[in-house]
C-alpha cells in the first residue's frame, strides 16, 4: 500500500476514535462507521497494490479476491451494526429524551459502595 493510503487509514481511524470517545450515541455510531472504513481499507490495501478486478476473462494480474470478499462481508455487517446502534439510540431517546451514553448505574453503585467502604476503613 502506498504511503498516502496508509495515511488515510490513520486519519480515518483517528477521527473514528475521537468520535467513539464522545458521550453522544449518534457520534459514537458515526465513529464506529469511520473506524470500520479505516479497517476495510487497511485489509484491502494490505492485500496488494491496485490491480485488475479478479474477474476471469480480464487481463491480469488480479487484485487478491480473498481480502475483497472479507471486506465485502465487513461492509454489510457494518451496516447491520450501525442500524442496530441507531435503534439503540432511538430507544435511549424515548427513555430519557436524549441519546447520551449514560453510565451504568449498577456499576457506578458498586464502585461508589467500594469507595465508601474504603473511606470508612481508612
Amino acid at each position: 500500500m502506498s504511503v498516502v493510503v496508509a495515511l488515510l487509514v490513520g486519519v480515518l481511524a483517528s477521527v473514528g476514535t475521537w468520535l467513539i470517545l464522545q458521550h453522544t450515541l449518534t457520534r459514537v455510531v458515526l465513529g464506529l462507521g469511520l473506524f470500520a472504513n479505516a479497517a476495510n481499507l487497511l485489509v484491502l490495501a494490505a492485500g496488494g497494490p491496485p490491480a485488475e478486478a479478479p474477474i476471469i476473462g480480464r487481463d491480469g494480474p488480479f487484485n487478491d479476491p480473498v481480502p475483497q470478499a472479507l471486506v465485502l462481508t465487513s461492509i454489510v455487517i457494518g451496516l447491520a451494526v450501525i442500524t442496530f446502534l441507531l435503534a439503540v439510540a432511538y430507544r435511549s431517546w424515548t427513555i430519557d429524551g436524549n441519546d447520551q451514553v449514560e453510565d451504568d448505574i449498577e456499576d457506578r453503585r458498586l464502585a461508589a459502595e467500594e469507595r465508601a467502604r474504603k473511606g470508612t476503613r481508612g
Binding site: M1, V3, A6, V9, G10, A13
Partner: peptide, 16 residues
C-alpha cells in the same frame, strides 16, 4: 485519537 491514528498508519506501512 492521534496516537491511534499514528499507530494504525505505522502498522499499515509495516504490514505492507
Amino acid at each position: 485519537s492521534v496516537a491511534v491514528g499514528v499507530m494504525v498508519t505505522v502498522f499499515a506501512l509495516a504490514v505492507t
